[in-house]
Nucleic acid binder design. Structure first.
Length: 467
RNA sequence: GUCCCCAUCGUCUAGAGGCCUAGGACACCUCCCUUUCACGGAGGCGACCGGGGUUCGAAUCCCCGUGGGGACGCCA
């Protein structure tokens, strides 16, 4: 077998969604695993629905996920001349023929077949045969080109995911490979490309299972080597329903915007429909060493945001701080915070990153370090009582004298609590409310140390003006 | 309707005839840690779609049901 070459071949009619991303990931990983090549091919022959924006969205998605291609992107619209050559060869060799049936005629045929409980298929009325009298071509009608599919026998292939699949040629019909305007159709372009680009494994969604026997027949007519096929089952939404734009089928870039790390999305996707024993958390380089098609589940998988969140949390707390800072900084800017020089973002993140499973949430949580928080009235009411001011005043008095390090502040906190004969939260909670606006935070001494003496005192005084 | 595919905890999955009184992970529950909230640690709850075979033995193989999904375009 020649060197492995896989491809991802999306049609640019929308953004790169999670299902497409997983298909791309598996194709990419398969090539990496076998030291092969991965190519990107844009299937843009549906001129009416393809858009440059969608092309860009796919490119952006692939770039964000860092699924780099070794060749391409190829654009099918740029290969028209080649398709037409192959088409003519097929016509000349008698593997294809012109069909003058109108769309209306075909619709009527389909309808009557459905009514009879039959599978709708072209009946071959323009298909040439040895002793057959073909109808006279109507004038002024541009014909389509149909492939002369074998009428007998079975098409068999050993699907790398689903095992042996057999489909009788009697189930197939003569598919249109070129439209009336002369442009080739999907099944034909795919075949020519997979053949000429030397694709060895076609890894794609299982909605293509039914196209496979047609493509194999076409490949055989062209005298081409038939690649191996691996049909991935689909991904269902969180609710078990088919992924659609209406419920949650979002662009992979949306995950980026929504606060997910690529590491988390990739790791999650890798484990959706594929497994390596009990391993759950692994890097992409590890994945590329492990990935194989033997351990792909043939059944559909339901997307589980909770688990993605868990992985996101894992990567937020384990990736280098500098990397997390790079992700969080722009999100702080989006919250209207311009200056993030003090306190150092990495120091803040070191204290806070264990508390969030999402980058946007993380940015929101730490925003108070860079801008004055609004006090949560529920928390304020709960933790600030008439006696509070006394306690806080005692704390401020003592704290002002210390060097404002976390350790020193910790000492002061303990001293004041002992002197006032109160429980620790009686002091810590009102401080949190004054400094952060809410009653939840990491160790309050560490927060105060990061915030700095000046800001702390200022925020305390704004809530307790008499101090 | 016809053809094709699929079927283990709520979810993702391990499982290739005996290692399975079915393992791991997310979620959930309990406890521990604790300066609140998290994080972390320790436990717990929880599944082989049904029925027939084959076999000494089946989650694993076969058949039939049932359920779910996909395809049936001059879309890709």
């Amino acid at each position: 077998m020649s060197a492995v070459k896989t491809r991802f071949a999306p049609s640019p009619t929308g953004y790169l969604h999670i299902g497409g991303a997983r298909t791309a990931l598996f194709s990419w990983a398969y090539a990496k695993r076998h030291a092969g090549q991965f190519i990107l091919r844009i299937e843009d022959t549906d001129v009416a629905r393809s858009t440059p924006e969608a092309v860009q969205a796919i490119l952006d998605g692939m770039a964000w996920l860092q699924l780099d291609h070794d060749e391409g992107p190829y654009y099918q619209m740029q290969r028209m001349d080649r398709y037409k050559q192959v088409l003519n060869n097929l016509l000349a060799a008698g593997h294809a023929y012109y069909c003058y049936s109108s769309k209306e005629e075909l619709d009527a045929l389909r309808e009557s077949q459905m009514l009879q409980g039959l599978k709708p298929r072209y009946d071959g009325r323009w298909r040439p045969a040895a002793d057959k009298q073909l109808p006279v071509p109507p004038s002024g009608v541009q014909p389509v080109v149909r492939f002369k599919n074998p009428t007998e026998g079975v098409v068999v292939w050993d699907d790398l995911v689903k095992g042996r699949i057999e489909i009788a040629n009697a189930e197939l019909d003569d598919l249109i490979i070129a439209r009336a305007d002369g442009t080739p159709t999907y099944n034909f372009c795919v075949v020519v490309d997979d053949w000429e680009m030397g694709i060895t494994q076609v890894i794609r969604g299982d909605d293509h299972v039914n196209n496979t026997p047609r493509q194999i027949n076409l490949l055989k007519a062209l005298g081409a080597q038939v690649p191996q096929y691996a049909h991935l089952s689909m991904i269902l939404g969180d609710d078990g329903q088919k992924l659609s734009k209406r419920h949650g089928a979002v662009s992979v870039m949306q995950y980026h915007e929504d606060g997910y790390l690529r590491e988390a999305v990739l790791n999650y996707l890798a484990r959706l429909g594929w497994s390596h024993g009990d391993d759950e958390v692994f890097s992409m380089s590890q994945f590329c060493e492990w990935f194989d098609l033997d351990h792909i589940t043939p059944s559909a998988a339901q997307f589980n945001t909770e688990k993605l969140n868990w992985l996101n949390a894992h990567y937020i707390k384990t990736l280098p701080l500098a990397q997390i800072a790079q992700e969080v900084a722009p999100r702080l800017h989006q919250l209207g915070i311009q200056d993030i020089t003090f306190p150092a973002l990495t120091a803040v993140l070191a204290l806070y990153r264990e508390r969030c499973n999402n980058l946007n949430q993380l940015a929101q949580e730490i925003a108070f370090f860079y801008q004055t928080p609004t006090v949560n009235s529920v928390d304020a009411e709960k933790h600030i009582t008439p006696e509070t001011a006394v306690v806080i005043e005692a704390f401020v008095t003592k704290a002002q004298a210390c060097d404002w390090s976390a350790n020193a502040l910790h000492e002061v906190l303990n001293t004041v609590v002992a002197a006032q004969q109160i429980k620790f939260p009686k002091l810590a909670m009102p401080l949190r409310v004054a400094l952060i606006g809410v009653a939840q935070s990491p160790s309050i001494d560490q927060v105060m140390a990061l915030l700095g003496k000046e800001v702390c005192l200022q925020r305390i005084r704004s809530l307790f003006p008499k101090i």
